[in-house]
């Protein structure tokens, strides 16, 4: 041990004082993740508020961690949740299992399931980490109406799929945002 060693130590500390600070001020200052960050899922809605999910279970099939459970249901004239015949009656994602890979998003045929940038999914109770349909559904934007209700934007589901973006703009979604992520903005 040389005489100058303590001074060397101070030297290291001193030199760091002039470098960029790496410390995150979380949670006082929240970090905005990259736009395509795989955060919490969201079940999107059509511009009139009907759900996009048709309960096809392809997300559950694609999931490598078996984190998703879906059960389909049949829309009736009196009780309609989505355009077309079928809707997601039960929808659950288990965040204890989800690995955030995003394969479910790729599997979704109606773009009902997307991921938000929301990353705060920690909890102190395991039971709270199974998110149900109520937790996952996108919030109602202006012009949207809580289902069940009739199809407001066309005669059948084809109108929703073919004219979707156009209808969304008519309902007041700004032209510079994509229709799918309309709800995402609201979450943030």
């Amino acid at each position: 041990m040389g005489m100058t060693d303590p001074l060397k130590g101070f030297g290291v500390t001193l030199s760091k004082m002039f470098k960029t600070v790496l410390t995150e001020e979380y949670p006082e200052v929240k970090k905005i993740p990259a736009p395509r960050f795989h955060g919490k899922h969201q079940l999107n809605r059509h511009p009139d508020g009907l759900e996009k999910c048709v309960g096809c279970e392809l997300c559950a099939w694609a999931c490598p961690a078996d984190a998703i459970f879906v059960e389909g249901g049949t829309n009736t004239e009196d009780e309609r949740y989505s355009p077309g015949e079928r809707y997601g009656f039960d929808y659950q994602i288990n965040y204890l299992r989800c690995i955030g890979c995003g394969l479910c998003i790729e599997a979704c045929p109606t773009r009902a399931l997307t991921m938000t940038n929301e990353y705060e999914t920690a909890d102190d109770d395991r039971r709270n980490l199974i998110y149900t349909k109520e937790d996952l559904l996108a919030p109602l934007l202006p012009g949207m109406e809580q289902p069940p209700h009739d199809m407001r934007l066309g005669e059948d589901e084809q109108d929703y799929y073919v004219n979707g973006p156009e209808l969304a703009r008519q309902q007041g979604v700004p032209s510079d945002t994509t229709v799918e992520t309309g709800g995402e903005e609201a979450v943030r």
Binding site: G55, C56, E57, A60, W61, E71, T74, R86
Partner: peptide, 9 residues
């Protein structure tokens, strides 16, 4: 059985 499940599940 209509819409109750998918065969792969």
């Amino acid at each position: 059985y209509r819409f109750r499940s998918r065969p792969f599940d």
